[in-house]
Structure formats: structure tokens, C-alpha cells
Simulated assay, not measured.
Amino acid sequence: MTAPVQPTHATVVAQWRSGRGWRAVLLFGPPGAGKSDLALRLIARGWRLVSDDYAHVFASGGALYARAPETIEGRIEVRGVGVTPSCALGLARAVLAVELSDEPFERMPEPETRVLDGVSVPLLHLNPREASAGEKVAAAIARL
């Protein structure tokens, strides 16, 4: 694999996909946007943490991968509680980017992508505070 790029400000969680292995979602947003909170809700549904808040994201063989920097591996910030241990994956293929914001989004948006280390992945805009945010992420990754 190639050397990792500079740390990317994103929380990364992955879901096991039968026949495909672990497929990761990169959650982007400013501090306090709800990246860790949405990750916790997905983890409660069986997803696994890859990295909280910062991740090394890099391309290899035309695919995008993410892993945690060693200094934060296996830990997630639980707002109001503190940093807690979490069962984490060492590496996962990233197949979806999600931009988190409280701003309203198009009901039926045109497809968008985000390019990371030369690899284009689908981009979803989402309000992480909606009760259905986890289901929306799961529905989006199931289409890939």
C-alpha cells in the first residue's frame, strides 16, 4: 500500500458487507457537527469504529482506505462522558463520504462525489441530528 496522506478530519465507521468485507463511511463536518455521535449510533447497530475525528486516508490499487492514527486508535470521544475505548478495525475500504451539517438539503439531490487521494467516492449530505440519520447512511452504503 502507499504511504498515508496527511490526517483527514473525519470520523470513520465500517459495516460488514457479506461477500465484500468491511466497507467504511467517512463522516465529515466541523467540530461539534455530530460525527462522533452519529458514529456511536451506527456502532450500536453493529458497525465498527475505524477512527474518530482524524483518519489516515489513502489510495491503493484504485480503492480508498482509512485507518486511525496510532495515537487515537481504538478510542472515541463521547461528548459529556469523555474519551472511551471502542472495538476498532485497523483498516477498512472507504466507499462513501458523508458531509454533516444542520443546513437543509435537497430532497432528491443530484449525485455528487468527493475526491480523496485521487479516488472519487459518492458524497451524501446529511443532518446527523435527524432520528433517521443512521438509517440513511445504511441505505446509502447498501446501494454501493
Rank of each mutant, 00 (worst) to 15 (best):
I76P: 00
R107V: 08
H125D: 04
A133I: 10
R48E: 09
G82V: 10
A131Y: 02
R45D: 13
L144Y: 02
G29N: 03
M108V: 12
P122W: 01
H9Y: 03
V121C: 00
V57G: 01
D102H: 09
G61W: 06
R17I: 07
D53S: 10
P30I: 11
H125R: 15
P30L: 12
Q6E: 11
R20K: 14
P122G: 01
L26S: 05
D53F: 14
T2Y: 15
G82Y: 11
H125A: 11
A138G: 11
R129N: 07
F28R: 08
S51A: 15
G46W: 10
V137P: 00
S120L: 02
A59Q: 06
L96D: 00
W22P: 02
L126P: 05
L91N: 05
E130P: 10
L144I: 10
L116R: 15
G32P: 00
P31A: 09
L40R: 02
L38F: 05
R45S: 13
R20Q: 14
L38K: 00
H56Y: 15
L100K: 02
G32K: 01
G34Q: 01
D52R: 10
P4Y: 11
A59S: 15
R107M: 04
L91K: 11
H9A: 10
R41W: 08
A94E: 09
S18M: 08
P104R: 07
G46V: 15
L96V: 09
L26C: 09
A94K: 04
A55K: 14
E106N: 02
S86A: 13
T71C: 11
V12Q: 03
G21F: 04
W47M: 05
R107G: 06
W47D: 03
L64W: 04
L42H: 08
P4K: 09
S18V: 12
P109E: 05
E106T: 03
A3V: 13
G74V: 11
G61S: 10
A131S: 08
T71M: 13
V12M: 07
